[in-house]
């Protein structure tokens, strides 16, 4: 009797994992997808929040890829477990706050747990030897396989021929000759394979799918940690770093200024957690105040808020201040002069 072998594939929503999955499906393996949600994934949020992005397709790329491939997709919430990966990466960070090497190991480890629980035989990733400096160096790939606990149950079909044979290959579940030997940063082989498989409308190559690789986002994250004297975070914290302009006029408080209606609407949901400022006499953004501002600071915050509203050139603007407990008051302030908004305030 032939046993139907089953694999789970780490689906990021990018092209590489899509190709790797298809390559294994072509060999008669039953494949299902798994996708991990760390809280830092770009997926969906920014589309949902920002009006100006509304015209772009709002699809979740991982779901879309799974649908193109005709496979099931399991999306796993790893927000809490991921904190330890981000806060204590054994192998440090990449160019920004991206702990890619530890992140890869963590995700593959989670996939190992998943296959054990669900009786699957092996794991597939779309990794390509030498494609990324931090996590995909050739000598590192077997190390990550070992450290994650996947060992020889981890197949990287796009670079399979460049790596030692895995158990699925040795056992004949997967034909090594039909794996690929891609390496390096060139995307040409992937493009060619995509064409061969008839994939046309795939998402841009991975890297742009994680806020931790974004310089500006990483700066806001570090700023938040430094000024709170703690590196702990909740999902709300990391969500708010994705919206608005962030200005820190004093070390003990910062302002989050909505950039457009979609962000203002999103930030509305946080008015019970933060002091919020809205403009009464003119149109203007919603502003959240994070930290421990004094009354004097609140006045400064109102002046800054007024600078971003339609009354910015008026002698006086009326600003409503609402406290998390629901108390509110209004102040009349002169919008801060443009030259007085220091560049260094922008986080």
């Amino acid at each position: 009797m032939i046993i139907q072998r089953k694999a789970v594939s780490l689906i990021s929503g990018g092209l590489d994992s899509m190709l790797a999955t298809r390559a294994v499906m072509e060999q008669g393996i039953h494949v299902e997808g798994i996708n991990f949600y760390t809280g830092f994934c770009v997926e969906g949020h920014t589309h949902a929040i920002r009006q100006r992005d509304r015209d772009k397709p709002k699809r979740n790329n991982a779901l879309w890829v799974a649908e193109q491939l005709g496979i099931k997709l399991h999306i796993v919430d790893v927000i809490d477990e991921y904190k330890d990966v981000l806060l204590n990466p054994k192998h440090g960070y990449g160019a920004n706050m991206n702990p890619c090497r530890d992140c890869k190991t963590f995700m593959i480890h989670k996939a190992v747990e998943w296959i054990e629980k669900n009786n699957f035989d092996f794991i597939i990733t779309g990794e390509v030897v030498g494609q990324r400096p931090m996590s995909q160096r050739k000598e590192l790939m077997p190390v990550i396989a070992r450290e994650s606990g996947a060992g020889d149950l981890l197949v990287r079909p796009l670079s399979g021929k460049n790596l030692p044979p895995t158990k699925p290959e040795r056992e004949g579940w997967v034909d090594r000759d039909r794996l690929f030997d891609f390496s390096g940063r060139s995307r040409k082989p992937q493009m060619a394979l995509a064409e061969q498989y008839g994939f046309t409308d795939y998402a841009q190559p991975a890297g742009g799918c994680c806020f931790l690789t974004d310089e500006q986002y990483s700066r806001k994250l570090v700023d938040m940690w430094q000024h709170r004297n703690s590196r702990d975070y909740e999902l709300d914290d990391i969500m708010l770093l994705k919206v608005g302009r962030h200005l820190r006029p004093r070390p003990h408080f910062k302002l989050i200024v909505g950039r457009e209606e979609g962000e203002n609407n999103f930030m509305e949901g946080y008015r019970k957690q933060f002091i919020s400022l809205h403009q009464v006499s003119h149109n203007g953004p919603l502003v959240l105040v994070d930290g421990t501002p004094t009354d004097e600071d609140i006045t400064l915050a109102a002046q800054i808020a007024a600078r971003f509203g339609q009354g910015k050139n008026e002698p006086e603007v009326e600003v409503g201040i609402t406290y998390p407990n629901g108390d509110s008051r209004t102040v009349r302030v002169e919008p801060i002069a443009p030259g007085k908004v220091e560049d260094a305030w922008y986080v």
Binding site: Y37, E43, I49, N60, I75
Partner: peptide, 12 residues
């Protein structure tokens, strides 16, 4: 108040 993909995860 959950942002995607959390509604999908909770549904799943």
């Amino acid at each position: 108040r959950l942002m995607c993909p959390l509604p999908v995860i909770r549904t799943q």
